[in-house]
């Protein structure tokens, strides 16, 4: 019977977690419509999440775009389809790899730092101090970060898409001997407007999830250094899994038809 109890406990725990994350998300969003607002915190979050993530986004996507071009070329050669490299790189980067990779890098870079920062604030009573200073931590800490990540992620994904395609282009032209102008023409001609819109929309969703998980786990951190460590780990794992799951669901929604 104890084995059934274990299953039951796990399921109940899982459902409870979904419930509390959902409530946390709803509360966060509700603060969007209730002043006061903290524009300075929002600006700071935009800078931290957006601007300072650019190097890591660029590096991740340029290498991936390059590797993708090599793989498509090698794979395509098996059925004499080497010429599709530009199209596949563009579609693969924009529809799938751009948003997912940028999402995961943001989970690594931003979710972890948000979770660790808020968890440390919680452990050192800074969150309680905010409350006693008549400042709602959800308004002051959570909303600015979640909103900034949601708004800035589409931009990062857009930049990532472009740099990824550039990675493919560089490899295609310099290493695989494609004609530069043909490569670009094929990229532009085969990419549809919908591909780009969905790419950026995915970015917004992933940004929301990444920042939300950082705040959620940070706010619920246990005590001490171990508590901060657990909160950070939990946040990054949850954000990564949620991003991948959301990616599947969104892809299904956008492309099934």
């Amino acid at each position: 019977m104890s084995f059934l109890a274990t299953i039951g406990r796990t399921v109940l725990g899982f459902l409870a977690a979904i419930g509390s994350v959902t409530l946390f998300a709803m509360e966060t969003v509700s603060h969007l419509f209730r002043p006061p607002y903290y524009p300075r915190e929002f600006g700071h979050a935009l800078l931290q999440i957006g601007y300072f993530s650019l190097p890591v986004v660029g590096l991740t996507t340029i290498f991936t775009g390059g590797a993708l071009a090599l793989q498509i070329y090698a794979g395509g050669a098996r059925f004499s389809a080497e010429a599709v490299v530009p199209q596949i790189v563009a579609i693969g980067m924009v529809r799938e790899l751009g948003p997912v990779l940028v999402g995961l890098m943001i989970a690594a870079r931003v979710t972890s730092s948000i979770a660790a920062e808020i968890a440390t604030m919680k452990v050192t009573e800074q969150i309680d101090a905010l409350t006693t200073l008549s400042t709602n931590p959800m308004k002051y800490l959570t909303l600015p970060r979640v909103l900034a990540a949601t708004l800035v992620m589409p931009v990062l994904v857009g930049v990532g898409d472009v740099i990824g395609i550039m990675g493919g282009y560089l490899v295609g032209v310099e290493r695989l001997g494609f004609n530069a102008s043909t490569y670009l023409r094929n990229t532009v001609d085969f990419l549809e407007f919908l591909d780009i819109v969905t790419s950026l929309a995915k970015g917004a969703v992933f940004g929301f999830l990444a920042a939300l998980m950082g705040c959620y786990f940070g706010m619920r951190s246990g005590r001490g250094a171990q508590g901060v460590g657990r909160a950070t780990k939990g946040a990054v794992v949850a954000a990564s899994v949620l991003i991948l799951a959301a990616n599947f669901i969104l892809t299904e929604l956008f492309f099934a038809a």
């Binding site: 050192t124 009573e125 800074q126 101090a129 905010l130 006693t132």
Partner: peptide, 9 residues
């Protein structure tokens, strides 16, 4: 309120 560890931001 004065917190135990100061709780400065």
């Amino acid at each position: 309120m004065l917190f135990q560890g100061g709780a400065l931001f």
